[in-house]
Amino acid sequence: MAVNGNVKQNNQSKVNIFTRAFRTIKAETKRITWASKDEVKKALAAVATFCVIYMVVVGVLDYGFSNLFKLIFK
Rank of each mutant, 00 (worst) to 15 (best):
M1R: 14
M1T: 15
A2S: 04
A2M: 08
A2I: 09
V3Q: 12
V3L: 11
N4F: 09
G5Q: 10
G5Y: 02
G5P: 01
N6F: 08
N6D: 04
N6L: 08
V7M: 04
V7S: 08
K8V: 09
Q9C: 02
N11V: 12
N11M: 09
Q12V: 10
S13H: 13
K14G: 05
K14R: 15
K14D: 01
K14N: 12
V15F: 03
V15W: 05
N16L: 07
I17Q: 15
I17T: 09
I17V: 13
T19N: 10
T19H: 11
T19W: 11
A21F: 15
A21D: 08
A21H: 12
F22L: 05
F22A: 03
F22I: 10
R23P: 00
R23I: 04
T24P: 00
T24N: 11
I25N: 06
K26L: 01
K26N: 07
K26T: 06
K26P: 00
A27D: 00
A27L: 00
T29L: 04
R31G: 03
I32C: 00
I32G: 01
I32V: 05
T33F: 04
W34L: 09
S36F: 02
K37E: 07
E39S: 10
V40F: 05
V40A: 12
A43Q: 13
L44V: 00
A45K: 04
A45Y: 04
V47C: 05
V47F: 12
V47A: 03
V47E: 05
V47W: 11
A48G: 00
A48L: 02
A48W: 10
T49K: 15
T49Q: 13
F50H: 14
F50I: 03
C51H: 10
V52R: 15
V52N: 04
I53H: 15
Y54W: 15
Y54H: 12
Y54P: 02
Y54Q: 09
M55W: 14
V56Y: 02
V58S: 09
V58C: 10
V58E: 02
G59E: 01
G59R: 00
G59I: 01
G59K: 01
L61P: 04
L61F: 13
L61K: 05
D62N: 14
D62F: 15
Y63F: 06
Y63S: 06
G64E: 00
G64F: 07
G64I: 12
N67R: 10
N67C: 07
L68C: 07
L68S: 10
F69D: 08
F69A: 05
K70Q: 11
L71K: 14
L71T: 15
F73A: 08
F73S: 12
K74C: 00
